[in-house]
Nucleic acid binder design. Structure first.
Lengths: 231, 231
DNA sequence: CACAATCAAGAGCAGCGCTCTTATTTCGTA
DNA sequence: TACGAAATAAGAGCGCTGCTCTTGATTGTG
């Protein structure tokens, strides 16, 4: 059904992919700020105006790279989760966190594109919201697997946070206690705080053994969301 | 001693300040990416080449804004700490965190400049490292005030993290137990994880009552660094 | 007073995103 | 199979950018 119609459609797919490939290469090499449509076209042996047949603007090309980056870091998280399927929840949690961090360290510019300063207009395009949620979903799933049945000790919910906690839990994980949902979202953002500080250089001259530091912090985040050291 | 020599020196100081002011205005309005030397010069009624007498490049102007932003957010943290001088450590901690968040929410583009993707070349200029440490120092000081004398229950340090913890503690707070120093650095980066996710839009359609959510998360970070709810 | 430092201004270069026009190639269909 | 429509490539060009170099005027100092 979705077979390629003819030579033209096939060429379009290939050229679109080639543009994204070259753009990703330039992104990885120099960062989003120095990604240039003209340079991409030049490298591909075409003229810049021809490139606009495939991406209507530079921001659209960047959006495509954003989606790819979200998918890549999400896939890394999912891979770590599935590879540790039988293990204890806390070990799975830290494995997922380490996989996310490893991807970020290996792809700093792509990471900056999705978790750094928002580059284009303020609101993220619709295409990005599903890929952007993949890491969070893995974290929720990992935590959920430890919460089938018995309750886990969570800190009491402050009075003023109760409505928000109920709403938030209903949105992202209706089967989990509201306090856990709130903690999960906090741990999610704090995980990327750790990673961003490392990738963006804020640990320069401060944290040296970043692997060990991160592993300990990620493990602690896992305990925060109710994953016990033994069990 | 440091009096202004003559009309020319005085004009130089004023013009330099005017350039920074206008640049900060444009930064706040449109973000770092759209900050243009030519636009700044235009708004100031001068020609673009004249501006290079005051800032040798666009990156140098951006660096000046970075220093200003670090100083502003650091001052906000210090103000919150001094205004809560007599209160309980955990309340002081959350007050500092909220002040930092409030500044970030009020100045999203300036926040993005310092805690988002690093914009210029990879290493931060020397001028930024002292201002950049002000928030962290306030956090350390706030936590230290709760650690005069009696020990506080901290999670055990993993085996592999002991050398790093000792080194890190010696660097940033020799009088504090290594486990606390490690936790502090983690809380520091995780605090900015919470703030960055809010400012950069990752909480869109997820967290609604951001004040309450942040307050609870910040309080929990404070407990992580050993600040007790009562005492 | 004269000399040196400082500065504003202009012209200009190379690069950028993007648009419009023109010519060529491919495709579905009459 | 031939034709008209759609898609594509290429070129020229607009206004913008950061930045450099040169020229001429202003200011401070020996």
């Amino acid at each position: 059904m979705t077979t390629v119609r003819g030579a033209r459609a096939r060429a379009r797919i290939e050229i679109t992919a080639a543009i994204k490939d070259e753009a990703r290469t330039q992104l990885a090499a120099e960062g989003a700020a120095k990604l240039s449509l003209r340079a991409v076209a030049r490298e591909l042996g075409m003229v810049s105006s021809a490139l606009y047949r495939y991406f209507p603007s530079r921001d659209d090309l960047l959006t495509a790279l954003i989606v790819e980056a979200y998918d890549a870091i999400g896939a890394a998280a999912e891979k770590a989760a599935s590879e540790t399927a039988g293990q204890r929840p806390l070990d799975r949690w830290t494995a997922v966190c380490r996989a996310v961090r490893a991807w970020a360290v290996a792809h700093p510019h792509e990471y900056a594109l999705i978790y750094g300063s928002p580059v284009p207009g303020y609101s993220a395009p619709q295409d990005t919201i599903v890929p952007a949620s993949r890491v969070g979903l893995v974290l929720i799933e990992t935590a959920r697997s430890a919460h089938t049945g018995e309750g886990v000790a969570l800190p009491p919910l402050p009075e003023g946070l109760r409505p928000e906690a109920a709403r938030l839990a209903a949105d992202i994980a209706p089967d989990l206690p509201p306090a856990l949902a709130v903690t999960l979202v906090g741990a999610w953002s704090q995980l990327f705080g750790l990673i961003s500080f490392e990738v963006f250089g804020h640990f320069h001259n401060i944290v040296e053994d970043r692997e060990a530091f991160f592993a300990a912090a990620a493990r602690r985040l896992g305990q925060d969301v109710g994953l016990l050291p033994r069990g």
